[in-house]
Amino acid sequence: MKVRDAMSRSVRSIKPDTKIIEVASLMCLYRFHGLPVVDDEDRLLGVIAEKDVLHSLFPKLEDLMSEGMHSVDLDREMARYSEVLDLTAEELMTKKPISVDPEMHLLRAATLMVRHTFRRLPVAEDGRLIGMLSLGDVHKAIFHANITGGLKGKATV
Rank of each mutant, 00 (worst) to 15 (best):
E91F: 04
L74E: 07
I142S: 05
S99T: 02
M69L: 13
L135F: 04
E90G: 13
T94N: 08
V157I: 14
L135I: 09
L29D: 14
R108N: 10
L61Q: 11
R119C: 01
K51F: 07
L29K: 12
H33E: 13
I98L: 03
E90Y: 15
L26E: 02
V100G: 03
E67G: 07
G46L: 04
M78V: 04
E67F: 10
G136R: 11
L64F: 07
L135E: 05
A145T: 10
I48W: 10
E62N: 11
R120K: 13
G153Q: 12
D101G: 05
V23N: 02
K19G: 14
M7P: 05
L129R: 01
M1T: 10
A6F: 03
D40S: 14
H139M: 15
H33A: 15
L112E: 01
A109Y: 01
D52R: 02
M113Y: 01
L133W: 03
E91W: 02
H116N: 11
F118W: 04
D86E: 15
L54R: 05
S56L: 11
E41F: 06
M104W: 09
K96S: 12
V38L: 09
D137N: 06
S82Y: 07
K60M: 06
E67P: 06
A89I: 06
T117L: 07
I98N: 01
S71V: 05
M78N: 03
C28D: 13
I20R: 03
L129S: 00
M65S: 15
M27Y: 03
T88V: 11
E103K: 13
E62M: 11
S99L: 01
I147Q: 10
H33I: 08
M65G: 11
G46Q: 04
M78K: 03
R76W: 07
A6W: 03
R31S: 14
S25G: 12
V157E: 14
L107R: 06
